[in-house]
Design a protein around this nucleic acid. Sequence first.
DNA 1: TATGAATGAGATTTCATTCAT
DNA 2: AATGAATGAAATCTCATTCAT
Lengths: 217, 217, 217, 217
Amino acid sequence: MSPPDRAAAAGLRPTATGRGADGSGRVLRARGQKTRARLLDAGATVFARRGFHAARVDDVVEVARSSHGTFYLYFSSKEDLFDQLVDRVATDLDALIDELPIVRDTEEGRAELRDWLARFAALYDRYGSVIRTWTEAELSGAPIGRHGQDVLARLTAAMARNLQTPARATLHPAITALALVTMVERLNYYVATSQVAATPDELLDTLVDVVTAALFG
Amino acid sequence: MSPPDRAAAAGLRPTATGRGADGSGRVLRARGQKTRARLLDAGATVFARRGFHAARVDDVVEVARSSHGTFYLYFSSKEDLFDQLVDRVATDLDALIDELPIVRDTEEGRAELRDWLARFAALYDRYGSVIRTWTEAELSGAPIGRHGQDVLARLTAAMARNLQTPARATLHPAITALALVTMVERLNYYVATSQVAATPDELLDTLVDVVTAALFG
Amino acid sequence: MSPPDRAAAAGLRPTATGRGADGSGRVLRARGQKTRARLLDAGATVFARRGFHAARVDDVVEVARSSHGTFYLYFSSKEDLFDQLVDRVATDLDALIDELPIVRDTEEGRAELRDWLARFAALYDRYGSVIRTWTEAELSGAPIGRHGQDVLARLTAAMARNLQTPARATLHPAITALALVTMVERLNYYVATSQVAATPDELLDTLVDVVTAALFG
Amino acid sequence: MSPPDRAAAAGLRPTATGRGADGSGRVLRARGQKTRARLLDAGATVFARRGFHAARVDDVVEVARSSHGTFYLYFSSKEDLFDQLVDRVATDLDALIDELPIVRDTEEGRAELRDWLARFAALYDRYGSVIRTWTEAELSGAPIGRHGQDVLARLTAAMARNLQTPARATLHPAITALALVTMVERLNYYVATSQVAATPDELLDTLVDVVTAALFG
DNA sequence: TATGAATGAGATTTCATTCAT
DNA sequence: AATGAATGAAATCTCATTCAT
């Protein structure tokens, strides 16, 4: 009745080496790797365009110039595709989070912050679609939503380290950090989706200004 | 938290005349008014839980303890229900936008800002579900999304008036305003959905601090 | 993501009264009862013709002159339909099992046995399709298969009571009983599916003879 | 239990010449023979586990540790694989049918019957999976099913020869024979699939007893 | 005014078969 | 001789909407 989940059974979880993570055996050759990557990219594109629910597998395979059958060779469901995209983004984002600098109100400090924000913007430009979809309701309860919340929590915690200075002792660290983080995320969102007319440079300059002001006002 | 008079008024305002919104010119008696209100409330609840796409008419009528047939007596489609909810929220929000004070770095100015933010929070507590769903709707470029964008634009414009002072002339007005607005919206979102542990008071205090700092840093 | 199973949630489990067995609320009116019955009958027909796997929901709704949507209003899946049919058959069969007579080698005893076998044949004629499908492989592990095994076990146990006489003490009760039961079932199968040319009367006469001979040989 | 020489011989007999069964006239070398045998064995296993319809080529090649491409090198379709398995079994079964003894109610006669039943059990142990699947195939009226019916008819006819004695002239020969045959088949089925707890010896003893009783009761 | 029932277009998913290496 | 990859027709299932009472 319940057919063995081929993709899952085959251990297709994404790994750069193309070897299933559970060691169950299936190894993807070059061509398979390419197809899988094409489907992941297409997924990012389509989820960005329509959100998780409105996105159809049909759209994904069309963008990837593949077929339904092929899709289910690599992903056990639409949700699985999203999961794997989330994994990818979370990994990249975690790496970035580790590098969030302690903001200083100096020429150098501002340069460091600006650089980090630029890298965040680059990542957002590529995978913002997935990040935005984290927010999409109903998923919030599911493990996916949780995953997104975890990353958000780590980012906020990293930002909160900036508030452990006497200067801003009066601010509630968790809330302030979250305020700054969401501001950064949303602004990137509005710029990435062209809902506000601003150049990337203007975005960065403003963010550096506002964040610094908030921290050292 | 949610101001009762506002909510009650908003519940009926769009059809205060008792005229059905489906263009049929049908006049609603007391019982019909009540059913319609129940469906609208249920819609807000369900859209909040699942988002626009994942929300099923089935869910709405179940929450409203009504039936499919009845639903289509009051709304011509699922989208229509959402539209009417948006109308309700947009009206209330526009009224609030008109009252956004010019922020001043004085005891009195902070009190005014705090008061405004409290009223925003109250509105968000009640109708945040719909506001959040705007984001999802925006992705599809539907007229609904446009409606949301308009309100956002008006709110941002109002906030931008705060930046036309010499003090902050260096900041990009549109972006900064948008940054502050989204920060306020998102923080309310995270508090309303209990994704961050903070009391409403802490939220308000922090927002007043950060907004003031950003404007007068 | 996982939409609430409408049929299951609605408590549509079959009950003559049309009230959900779990008391969850949904009550079927006359029309609904009729449609559900039509679908169950169609299921029996189609499963008989093609077996469980080859049967398509398409076939079932066509025979019932209904639609896909309606089908899933009453059954959560093809398997659920089968489950409910099994329930129905198992209940009837259990009632019959209780009445299996102790076989006696007298005119009267043979008449009793013949009568029972006739009733079994009637039931088999109606629901043999479902009974046969119990056998269909892979189902054996699933709860469905188990259900079938249970009924078989009860029938065999009832038959085994016939062997607790000194006369046949040398026979292995469980195996002998099973041998007789399967013989009865299979013969009905071959007659019902016209794979052997025999009249119902010939079938009954032969079965009475062989069973009696086996027990009193 | 399964007589090694028989099974081994049967494994290759249909293509003992090394000629592919797909009509391509391809001549198989040792390696090809081995692969083909592995696929046939895997087919028997999988058909047993899931039945004809539920069995996927995927499962077969996985059990055979081969690939889809290879499968279609040896078999033109899933049905072809089943056909070839049926051929294999039918050949063995026909040989056995020819040896069905005329049952006599003597020590020697019982020994002969017991020996024959033991050989049947051995064959069933090995290929019962395919025999069982005949039943499923019969439902669809496919040529495969017909094949199975033919073998059954021959077996029944052979058994019917046992009834042409004055002693049992009152019994309907075809039905009685079929009754005995199906009893033998089903009992082997239940023992082979461990659905009844009985040793092969108990099975044989009981079958000899019941068959003899039925014929000479 | 209300509602249970019915519908069918459209989405997801499966799997036998073919292809390219 | 072997195989990983790709395909698409066909199946299952969902749900917004209409119908009949």
